[in-house]
Design a protein around this nucleic acid. Sequence first.
DNA 1: AACACCCGCAACCGCACTATA
DNA 2: GTATAGTGCGGTTGCGGGTGT
Length: 271
Amino acid sequence: MGRKPCCEKIGLKRGPWTIEEDHKLMNFILNNGIQCWRLVPKLAGLMRCGKSCRLRWINYLRPDLKRGALSEVEEDQIIQLHSRLGNRWSKIAAHFPGRTDNEIKNHWNTRIKKRLKIMGLDPVTHKPIEQREKCNSEAEQLSRFHSQREQQKDLKIEPLDTPGLEDAPLPQMEGEDSFQPGSDETINVLHGYEMLWEDLDMGMMINPENNPTNSYSSSFSLEDSFSRSTGESSSLQEDSGQCWINNVNYSIPQWDLFHNVDDIFLLKNNQ
DNA sequence: AACACCCGCAACCGCACTATA
DNA sequence: GTATAGTGCGGTTGCGGGTGT
């Protein structure tokens, strides 16, 4: 059948949002609520499609968003939920107030997936990967590890698809025999693998977060605005937020005034 | 200092689902 | 029952910053 695009695309702006656009969208929604996303850009004076506005609001401008890196506990919960729900990110995100499906999806794809693979777990099924596949994966890891080392030493290395590796026993965890895909025991297995790998001095590979690199969006951040209104400041904000403050000067709503945002929007929508 | 590569994240795209005429 | 509009969701892409050489 083929649906029409949600809006006329000619002449519409794409790409990163500017502070002015954020400001317009925020002001409009706070004053009028959300009734029809298609009308939002027109009424708010934005050259964007409704879909883009919706996404920007949900993923970035919503006042109840929780910013900052996901904690290890949250990460474990995501793994648990993923084992039950699969890639239903919106359902998973529903368990984390203030987190967006996009954020969780990104985190899964960039970190958790790798972490599980390195631990020998299939990120899709949460089952231990087939022995051969696992060996290959281990071989890959070892290959990278060795090649980095050997590159430093400028030495020739042996090929890694040696029979010895294939015959190597898989790490056996307690209760692994009774492992059920999708069960909560996934977490136990994860912790078991972590301990094992840490014993092998591979902790840095499993937990790259041990050496985190602070990243932040150059776009407008509500966390920054909150910090400014409350005087709170994290180390991250001192770097990014302060820089932002120094360079941008415009008024934004005081988010701590909106204790129950849902009520506000429901009220608007019911009018 | 310059370049290449890697990684994380915001944003886009297209399909699916639901409501409605 | 069918077509269409609106919205939600998941997969993918591309940009920008960080890191290594």
